[in-house]
């Protein structure tokens, strides 16, 4: 087969959903750090969000399945630790999708800007941690709904 371009591979990766937050892709999440061909081997560098995130090995499997599905024969997945992942790498598209999905996107101020359900700005923190390592739990005191907040790191 002819080698697909790296742009093509990035597009494919942008169709692989994050296993925990399926509305955003692995590319939206900012964990794909590099795509390159080394001879006839496709190298994809992936960085973990949190060092103990249990989704990491699952994500690698998803990447492998997707690439095999597109006919990639030789694939090498590399773990890249530095520079450490930051929520600054979330894509604009990903941020919009998070909010639409009901997860308040990260803010440099350290807390959500508004309730992802009603847009209310009277908010309180329930817990610094949430259903996954990357989220915290907040509540809107306008509509009284709890919601996930994507921690800013």
């Amino acid at each position: 087969m002819t080698r697909p371009s790296t742009e093509q591979v990035w597009e494919w990766l942008d169709q692989v959903p994050d296993p925990e937050i399926p509305v955003i892709s692995l590319v939206d999440l900012g964990i794909i750090r590099d795509v390159a061909w080394m001879g006839d081997t496709l190298e994809i560098s992936v960085t973990p969000t949190y060092s103990g995130c249990p989704a990491t090995s699952f994500i690698n499997m998803e990447i492998e399945t997707a690439m095999r599905g597109h006919g990639i024969q030789r694939l090498a997945l590399k773990r890249q630790l530095a520079p450490a992942w930051t929520t600054d790498w979330l894509s604009e598209k990903g941020i919009a999708k998070l909010e639409e999905y009901g997860i308040a996107p990260p803010q440099p101020a350290g807390g959500p800007a508004r309730c992802p359900h009603c847009g209310g700005t009277h908010l309180e923190r329930i817990s610094q941690f949430g259903s996954t390592p990357c989220k915290a739990q907040w509540r809107c005191t306008d509509c009284l709904e709890p919601f996930d907040y994507f921690k800013c790191i």
Binding site: P48, S51, C53, S127, F129, S131, Q137
Partner: peptide
């Protein structure tokens, strides 16, 4: 429940650092 989740997440981070 919130403390349970927070402690489990803290433990997870520590185990992740351990692997490194």
């Amino acid at each position: 429940l919130e403390e349970d989740i927070a402690l489990a997440n803290t433990a997870l981070d520590l185990i992740g650092q351990t692997q490194l």
